[in-house]
Design a protein around this nucleic acid. Structure first.
Length: 464
RNA sequence: GACCCCAUCGUCUAGAGGCCUAGGACACCUGGUUUUCAUCCAGGCAACAGGGGUUCGACUCCCCUUGGGGUCGCCA
């Protein structure tokens, strides 16, 4: 049987990092088994679903290179199918109309909470043998509820949590259709997973409690029960629930914050899953290695330091032209009007080992393209009268140097020797004047890349 | 409150009863390389939540406690 998995987000906002991790594992499991990975948009809540959010999901998946099979499925395009099956359930006596209003439900819930019992629909409209149903009120459009079995329990062998059992008495008769006839979440999921022949439902921990409802629905529809895998949540670094406001939760935020997609998927996959001591692996290695046996069942805390470390790894190994394409727009955002390709490429080569983020990368090489300002603190620290006169002598001789990186390096060394000074005595003032900071790679390479004119200009600005 | 799930270094994790004197990675600390910083290299610090069982033997199995998380919508 072909393995089919799916990612089923609802388009109501940003793409959550926890959601994308379930997508990542679903994708990997399908790939590993040469099966199918489906993207399904759960947009039955017409009020809250937006086209913009659909685009965010598509872009996020594309950015992370999580390709799906088949066309994207939208639940709103399948309403006829849902209605057909709701009718079947009604006809076979597994569903019924309920005229209880929202206000009455709120009242009931309040009462139950005050009594310290689990809030639950009381089944007042549930047809039962020898039971008199209330009179149907005027002008009330009913919802349709599923007649959940009242005895027994539902259990399944969860691929990550093991045996899970929940008693039917814990469940109530869930609403499967709203007064306007639109179907609700649990019902659509069940029908879709069935119709799409989904074999493995891989989703977040927060759906564990929906699983028995869905299994009951599946049974009533006489549909096969898929395998379930409930992944634990990702918590923010303080152990609290992660959200847009708390801990960076939006996938696109990671892109904007300067992370490479490979770093994000690598980090996320390693969070809660392991393959021996491997820390760095590609998407295709994940697809090859993935299994449920090595998924942790406990929640994991998000650790930015480790993500940064992984991001640095990928930045170090990324081809220069790819990095250039990512960094150029960031330089422009920072006010650079013209980005010389040669300078950019050289700057990237010189800096890529040390950078753990595309944004700070752009910040660090900004001085190649833009005038800088030297802080008073740095001036006081490095620009004494003696160093200023050294700089004057240096720049006078620099003009005579044959302009290769090698010759510039040789020249600096020769200058140090000639003046009988220590290397930092000339290197640090030059660093500060040319780059505006005292931590940089080789000063010789920097001088070579920015060029004699810029060096002269920045020195003259400072010396005057 | 009820129900469900979870529990190894600060963090992510390895661990399928003897391989554990509990391994790796991030972070942190020290040293080396780099006459700056980062990278890189070498070394170090650091954990089985607590209590009961089961067993010749428990990080591993069972129970309880504690702690954490999730769910209890005409949201998904």
């Amino acid at each position: 049987m072909e393995i089919v998995t799916r990612f089923a987000p609802s388009p109501t906002g940003y793409l959550h990092i926890g959601g994308i991790r379930t997508a990542l594992f679903s994708w990997a499991y399908a790939k590993k088994n040469k099966g199918k990975f489906i993207l399904r948009i759960e947009d039955t809540d017409v009020e809250r679903s937006t086209q913009e959010a659909v685009e965010i999901i598509k872009n996020g998946m594309k950015w992370l290179k999580l390709d799906h099979d088949d066309d994207i499925i939208f639940q709103t395009q399948r309403f006829d199918r849902y209605k057909e099956l709701i009718k079947a359930l009604l006809d076979q006596g597994d569903a019924y109309y309920c005229y209880t209003s929202k206000a009455e439900l709120d009242q009931l819930r309040e009462l139950q909470v005050s009594q310290g019992i689990k809030p639950k629909y009381d089944g007042r409209w549930r047809p039962e043998e020898n039971k008199n149903l209330p009179d149907i009120p005027d002008n009330v459009q009913p919802v349709i509820r599923f007649k959940t079995p009242q005895n027994g329990e539902i259990n399944w062998k969860d691929l990550v949590k093991g045996e899970v059992a929940i008693k039917n008495e814990e469940l109530d008769d869930l609403i499967i259709a709203r007064p306007d006839g639109t179907p609700t979440y649990n019902f659509c999921v069940v029908v879709d997973d069935w119709d799409m022949k989904v074999t493995h439902v891989i989703r977040g921990d927060d759906h564990v409690n929906n699983t028995p409802r869905q299994i009951n629905l599946l049974k009533a529809l006489n549909a096969p029960i898929p395998q379930y895998a409930h992944l634990s949540m990702i918590l923010a670094s303080d152990g609290q629930k992660m959200s847009k406001r708390h801990g960076a939760a939006s996938v696109m935020q990671f892109r904007d914050d300067g992370y490479l997609p490979e770093a994000v998927t690598n980090y996320l996959a390693r969070l809660g899953w392991s393959h021996g001591d491997d820390e760095i692996f590609s998407l295709s290695e994940l697809a090859e290695w993935f299994d449920f046996d090595h998924i942790t069942s406990s929640a994991a805390q998000f650790d930015k330091e480790k993500l940064d470390w992984i991001n640095n790894h990928y930045i170090k190994n990324e081809p220069v032209d790819k990095l250039a394409a990512l960094i150029k727009p960031r330089l422009i955002d920072r006010g650079v009007s013209r980005v010389e390709t040669d300078i950019l490429n050289d700057a990237i080569k010189l800096y890529q080992d040390r950078e753990k983020n595309l944004n700070t990368f752009a910040d660090d090489i900004l001085f190649f393209f833009q005038d800088i300002k030297v802080s008073d603190e740095l001036k006081n620290k490095y620009l004494s009268e003696k160093s200023k006169s050294l700089i004057r002598a240096f720049v006078g001789e620099l003009e005579k140097v044959n302009w290769t990186n090698d010759d510039v390096d040789k020249f600096i060394k020769a200058f140090v020797k000639y003046e009988d000074i220590r290397f930092p005595e000339i290197a640090m003032p030059l660093r500060v004047i040319i780059t505006g900071t005292d931590n940089t790679p080789s000063i010789g390479s920097i001088i070579f890349i920015v060029g004699i004119e810029v060096v002269k200009k920045r020195i003259s600005v400072i010396l005057e």
